[in-house]
Simulated scan of single mutants.
Amino acid sequence: MGKGDIKTRKGKISAGSYGVLRPRKSKESIAPVAKAAAAPKEKAPKEAKPKKAAKK
């Protein structure tokens, strides 16, 4: 019983799989990060670069 045993939690972690012993975290259980707390920075509009003339 160890890393090679897929039926155990340790084996599922090493194999990278999920199941009854290692359920995935739901999106609801993860608390959202508050981005509104920081002052929003205003993005400056990008200036259009002049296009180069095509060479012949």
Rank of each mutant, 00 (worst) to 15 (best):
M1D: 15
G2V: 03
G2Y: 09
K3F: 09
K3I: 08
G4I: 07
I6L: 03
K7D: 09
T8G: 03
T8K: 02
T8N: 05
T8I: 03
T8R: 00
R9E: 15
R9A: 13
R9V: 14
K10T: 10
K10I: 06
G11V: 02
K12M: 12
K12F: 02
I13Y: 11
I13E: 15
A15G: 04
A15T: 03
S17Q: 08
S17P: 02
Y18G: 07
G19H: 02
G19I: 02
G19C: 00
V20S: 15
V20F: 10
V20Q: 15
V20D: 15
V20K: 09
L21N: 11
L21T: 04
L21V: 06
L21H: 05
R22M: 05
R22K: 05
R22Q: 08
R22I: 02
R22S: 04
R24P: 01
R24K: 03
K25R: 05
K25N: 04
S26W: 03
S26L: 09
S26K: 06
K27N: 11
K27Q: 09
K27Y: 12
S29H: 07
I30C: 10
I30P: 01
I30Y: 07
A31D: 11
A31V: 10
P32V: 07
P32H: 08
A34D: 15
K35T: 14
K35Q: 13
A36I: 04
A36T: 11
A37L: 10
A37M: 11
A37G: 08
A37S: 14
A38K: 05
A38Q: 06
A39V: 10
P40M: 01
P40F: 01
P40A: 03
K41G: 07
K41V: 06
E42W: 10
E42T: 15
E42P: 10
E42Q: 15
E42C: 12
K43C: 14
A44R: 04
A44I: 04
A44M: 10
P45L: 01
P45F: 00
P45N: 04
P45I: 02
P45C: 02
K46Q: 11
K46D: 08
K46V: 10
E47P: 00
E47T: 06
E47K: 05
K49V: 07
P50K: 11
P50I: 00
P50L: 07
P50E: 14
P50S: 15
K51N: 13
K51F: 05
K52F: 13
K52H: 08
K52W: 10
A53W: 04
A53T: 04
A54L: 07
A54E: 14
A54N: 12
K55S: 14
K55T: 07
